[in-house]
Amino acid sequence: METIYRRPALLADLPTHYCPGCGHGTVHRLVAETIEGLGIGSRTICVAPVGCAVLAYKYFVLDCCVAAHGRAPAMATGLKRVLPDRVIFTYQGDGDLASIGGNEILHAALRGEPITIIFVNNGVYGMTGGQMAPTTPLGMRTTSSPLGRDSQQQGYPIHLPELLAALPGVAYAARRSTHSVAEIRRARQAIQRAFTVQLRGLGLGIVELLGACPTNWQVTPVEALEFIEQVMLPVYPLGEFKVAAELGA
């Protein structure tokens, strides 16, 4: 009998702490599959964030460390500089990467650090209970924007891959989603490319992945997928914003 579906070897056989319908489970799987597929598991180090994915080290069967909030790109820089032949990736949420860690990701990108950034965007601070993130769409109600995000008061959502794509140090920048099977397949390809640019020493690779947060969006897991399509996608267009020429089509 042919096995057509199994748990990736680099994902621990554990129940996760993630809520039902959470996007992290899908993204964890895609990352583990990619690392396994590239055959780099024994030389890959994960830098986990502060936020819902803080426990990523429990699930990835990899050497892992946990950075302070937002500092994962700096920690990854330190690791990569002393271990240039290892593969270093950070796994970060939107509050971690786009808010408190804005300076660290900007400068890691400016330096063209050959590291991979897996960036999960669900438009809220999940771990602390659904506060407004820099990625919260305009009009969306959160516990810290109870009247809905107002651009006059709280500014505009950040489009990080588009911003970083402008920097010469960035070799790959894309946004993908996890709300449908077709998009998950594209997401897997983007994650693979974000690792490949590191393996080829081309620069920093970043993939933003739109992920569901049914708990803090206060919808069911199925409704959350519709929420991505109807609320997130109009704000966050999917696509590849930078693909290093050396990567090919």
């Binding site: 500092r71 700096a74 920690m75 820089t77 330190g78 690791l79 500089r81 002393v82 660290e104």
Partner: peptide, 13 residues
């Protein structure tokens, strides 16, 4: 801030 977290990363190795 970044400097000490880079030290942290390198020291983890």
């Amino acid at each position: 801030i970044a400097a000490i977290h880079m030290v942290y990363g390198a020291a983890c190795a």
